[in-house]
Design a protein around this nucleic acid. Structure first.
Lengths: 300, 300
DNA sequence: CAAAGCGATAGGAAAACCCGATGATAAAGC
DNA sequence: GCTTTATCATCGGGTTTTCCTATCGCTTTG
């Protein structure tokens, strides 16, 4: 039964019998009959079939929700038992917004120190993609913005707040300033994250409230690209101050704090909401609570 | 895999391989190997074995929690798909505190009217037993006290509040009174619910606060026994007023309201907390919201 | 109109499952 | 102290289920 539910998940994700079967390590006919069995078992058509995959029926959509829940729980059960067997162990997949990558490193190294048998995969994704990954069981936890945009059904723990800073070469007109205001940056050519990222939307809002529009010359999903283009192209970029200092050191760049006009966005650890929480996630949340900045705990 | 989890549930409940196997409709060796398979799959010993069943290991206890979740969800998935197939249908098992039985009847008849394909089983249980039944997937929903004592992880919707009244024969010394106080009842011989029931504990608290002790001559888990013993034995009993009037009519009994000295206890519908809620339960909660007394919604 | 892509179906081999019978061990009875 | 009983594990078999390869039928594409 669980096997068939996994088939449904794979099929819904791949939208293609052949590919889904391949992912599952079975042949296409096996998948085909597996889905048919599930449909018989539930007494409902789940998949719109013609000679092509035609999407899930409404019942299929609904069954998918349950399937995620059940398959996820059964995996978590297995993981937890393995943890019992060999201490906290296993593999955690973290999906992280680009500007939180340095914090992800901090979190994972500290965790790995306490629990040497736990390994990590860290992906850099936009905040919406992170929520999707968590939904689809393709990630176990994430680092993302906690407010601003609706989270799904998740547990969360704040880690820190983002304070923005301008990053530019020392020969940049604004490089010598102690602070700058958003309104100072209306005419400055900038390298910024792509508009699908929440960081960029937050920046845009700040610009808008200052009554100016950002001049984005380079857009990228990677902060490394942004800083590199600052170094090579003589432009400027805007990043959270911590992250900026991390990337700027050793490259002869200036980091100039920007005056804050609204609450600093809060970033933290999120994981799918679960009733029985697995020990690994519990430990991760405990660690997050320990290494969070004092400021992050303040509710705005 | 789910099959094996069901085996674990049955074994944990029956504490006996033979009986558990029988409940599952399989033979004892099948159960034995099923459990062993599960243990191999999870890589952990789940059951303490000697030549007798020796209880679950700590890991087994923990796995049991997940098993309940997973098996419950898979049943709810099946039920929901059946509902899609043949409209709202199926069988709901309600566990109800004795004094709420009349409300259970109201709830079920109204629901059955709207959804003729849904049938009910209504059990009369104490509030703690109700929570156990919900935990063990042996009941789908319940009617019980909403405050006073800790509920587990449940959804709840208030239905009404209990206002106590004295029930006695018309030849009883207190029968002619308009109202009585708790302190008036210290010397009155009473028939009351057994002390394992929350209703009785609430009564005890009321008595205690009035500085008197109840004189319980007959104790029972059934309000019918209480009223019958009032009729036959000339004693008195204390019941929620609604329930009292229901049972008292036609038997020449007096129902005398008791002065309230504390907030009237709230009674409502409860069901295991679920993320995807099944349509039947959703409908039941909606109905509960419609037929609830206005007073019940007030938070004290 | 031929070719390619996609999913369903058929048939046979392999695996899993389930049962009855039996074995082993510990508690209970005499 | 020995026998009996209760209880769970194991074994050998027959049956069902599962899964794979090969192929078919339909649809889309060039």
């Amino acid at each position: 039964m669980i096997k068939q539910l996994e088939m449904l998940l794979a099929l819904a994700k791949e939208q293609h019998f052949g590919r889904a079967a391949e992912k599952l390590g079975i042949t296409q006919p096996s998948l085909s009959s597996g889905i048919k069995q599930l449909e018989e078992h539930l007494g409902v058509k789940l998949v719109q079939r013609g000679s092509r995959y035609g999407g899930l029926t409404p019942e299929g959509q609904r069954a998918l929700v349950w399937a995620r829940q059940i398959v996820g729980d059964s995996r978590r059960l297995r993981d937890e038992m393995r943890s019992v067997r060999e201490g906290l162990s296993g593999h955690l997949r973290l999906a992280v917004i680009p500007t939180a990558l340095t914090w992800a490193a901090r979190l994972t190294t500290e965790f790995a120190q306490a629990h040497p048998n736990v390994s990590f995969t860290v992906l850099s994704r936009s905040s919406v993609e992170i929520l999707e990954l968590l939904e689809n069981l393709d990630a176990d936890a994430g680092l993302s913005y906690l407010d601003n945009e609706p989270l799904g059904r998740v547990n969360s723990a704040p880690l820190y707040r983002e304070h923005f800073a301008l990053v530019c070469r020392t020969d940049h007109p604004l490089a010598a300033r102690d602070r700058v205001a958003w309104s100072d940056l209306g005419d400055t050519p900038l390298s910024l994250l792509t508009p699908d990222m929440q960081n960029r939307r937050i920046l845009n809002r700040n610009f808008m409230e200052a009554g100016v529009a950002p001049q984005a010359r380079v857009e990228s999903g990677s902060t490394i690209v942004l800083v590199a283009s600052v170094i090579d192209g003589g432009q400027a970029t805007i990043l959270p101050e911590d992250h900026a200092r991390f990337l700027a050191t050793g490259h002869g760049l200036s980091v100039v704090p920007i005056d804050e006009t609204r609450g600093a966005p809060s970033v933290g650890l999120i994981a799918p909401f679960q009733d029985p929480q697995t020990p690994v996630l519990t430990a991760l949340f405990r660690l997050a609570g320990r290494i969070a900045t004092p400021e992050s705990a303040v509710t705005t």
